[in-house]
Nucleic acid binder design. Structure first.
Lengths: 165, 165
DNA sequence: TATTGTTATACTCTATAACTATA
DNA sequence: TATAGTTATAGAGTATAACAATA
């Protein structure tokens, strides 16, 4: 068992990688996503769209276009996702009265119930990831991640990137 | 300018998301990758395989199979990547003498030179991400990320996941 | 029989462009 | 003219299965 892990033991991981925050983030995200999908089953396609479902819950009736922007997707890419989650009973589209072009997205009652149960699974997985951290350490870590987030948003929003120095 | 950012300002982001380490990791990785690709140009396909190139540099002659495992790819998925990076002059494959089935992967001399220049760009990007962090805070953050990494590795290596509680 | 690299193939996720209906 | 949602289509990136060469 764990053949990969054993094989990797004698792999030289250069400090340029292990010491790099962006590289760490990349590998961590891959590993976290893998364990997430491995742990949480029985919810159809929803787990990978958990964040989106929570956004809809917190912003009931959000315009489809705005939802796409919020999760950094093209509006066309969101269509099949909405389609699947509607078919699975999580979401529903309703026409906006003010502007007949837009669709407003809502959780169904069934979606609300299922999301509550999914959330418990997500919390269980979060506990695995943060095992051994004290509440104070977790607060600190969240703060650090938020700082990096702010750095990145500022950088990506900057008009020209050619010479940032 | 920055239309998306303005639109997102009045979006409600539930605490279940902003407070979740795994969700943060996911969004951060996406943003970091975007800014990475936006910043670092003129190196062909190499930037996205920077981590792999550094692994080859630190493990010259690594077997193709083992390299695939190290970056969590199927061996078949690595083939076209090696192909591209060879065509662009970064890598070369050599037959292993001991076992004529295996190919050993090396950086070319040109690859060594170009990687040194690429590394400087990567360092510049890393500085953007970690802007405002003191060296002590950075050490602390790297330690925290390493702890999460250890948690995930232990969890993914565990034989059965059905009931982790 | 098992393993390494390869190929053929398919699947998932995403974006671009064009279409429609509204505005 | 511009915008929201949709559709058609294509491009990455990945995995699975089958193959040849070798162990």
């Amino acid at each position: 068992m764990a053949g990969v892990m054993r094989d990797l033991e004698d792999l030289v991981e250069p400090e340029a990688l292990t010491g790099s925050v962006s590289y760490r983030l990349r590998l961590l995200q891959i590993a976290a996503y893998k364990s997430f999908e491995k742990t949480i089953t029985g919810f159809g396609a929803a787990p990978r769209y958990y964040g989106m479902l929570k956004l809809v819950q917190a912003n009931p009736g959000i315009h489809q276009m705005r939802l796409a922007e919020a999760i950094f997707l093209d509006r066309s890419s969101l269509v099949p996702i909405i389609e699947i989650l509607s078919r699975e009973g999580w979401l529903e589209r309703r026409d906006a009265k003010s502007d007949r072009r837009v669709k407003r997205i809502f959780l169904t009652d069934e979606g609300q119930d299922k999301l509550a149960r999914l959330e418990a699974e997500v919390a269980r997985h979060e506990a695995v990831i943060t095992d051994g951290f004290t509440p104070a350490e977790l607060d600190r870590l969240r703060g650090d991640l938020a700082r990096i987030d702010a750095n990145l948003r500022g950088f990506l929003a900057a008009p020209n990137v050619e010479q940032s120095a």
